[in-house]
């Protein structure tokens, strides 16, 4: 038995192009769950506003129900009191799901290096994209969204069942 030519091994050609199509569909229909706690949430409003218009990316339907959301946009300070809530919301989301940490507070705690603030949400949930800034400009939030789109486009349909992914979730004690 000879070796399969490159690109034809593993998942078949149709499977991969099918994955691509689904990836494209997902990328263009990312419904955000705006977990807006503070300042960055206000900038997210600006992102939803007419001038920046997040709907161009197909993401203008904010799903406040975690079941229906595709990306968790954590915007603003997450206090230690809030940490478990973030985790719970993440657990309630249906796969595939991505997490974007927007702004200094959500990514690292920012200037709030205090006893009550969680120093970055990646301590409770796995984060896919970090957006710096305090608060980031709407451009930067859109930038983060496009990074997620890139992820979605290139993600294998089977990634969510892979042992690596399970291990990642396990390391956060999720499910």
């Amino acid at each position: 038995m000879g070796e399969a030519p490159e690109g034809y091994s593993g998942a078949g050609f149709f499977a991969t192009s099918f994955e691509k199509v689904i990836g494209l569909a997902r990328a263009n229909s990312l419904w955000p769950l705006p977990f807006a706690t503070s300042c960055c949430g206000i900038e997210f409003m600006a992102t939803m506003g007419s001038t920046y218009d997040i709907s161009r990316f197909g993401s203008e339907r904010p799903s406040f129900s975690p079941r229906q959301a595709d990306i968790l946009l954590v915007m603003g300070t997450i206090a230690k009191k809030m940490g478990p809530v973030v985790k719970q919301v993440y657990e309630q989301m249906a796969e595939p799901k991505w997490v974007v940490a927007v702004g200094a507070c959500a990514t690292s705690g920012g200037i709030f290096d205090t006893y009550s603030v969680l120093q970055g949400i990646d301590r409770v949930v796995p984060v896919d994209v970090y957006v710096p800034g305090c608060p980031p400009r709407p451009e930067q939030i859109l930038d983060g969204l496009m990074r997620v789109q890139d992820l979605a486009k290139n993600e294998s349909l089977r990634r969510r069942h892979s042992p690596e992914y399970q291990a990642l979730l396990a390391s956060y004690n999720i499910k």
Binding site: K80, K81, G109, D113, T114, Y115, S116, V117, Q119
Partner: peptide, 21 residues
């Protein structure tokens, strides 16, 4: 603060920082 907190954080002897940084 969370109900489980054991001290009163604004007293001067307690540190400001999150010690896990």
């Amino acid at each position: 603060n969370i109900e489980e907190m054991e001290y009163h954080p604004m007293l001067k002897q307690y540190p400001l920082e999150d010690l896990t940084r």
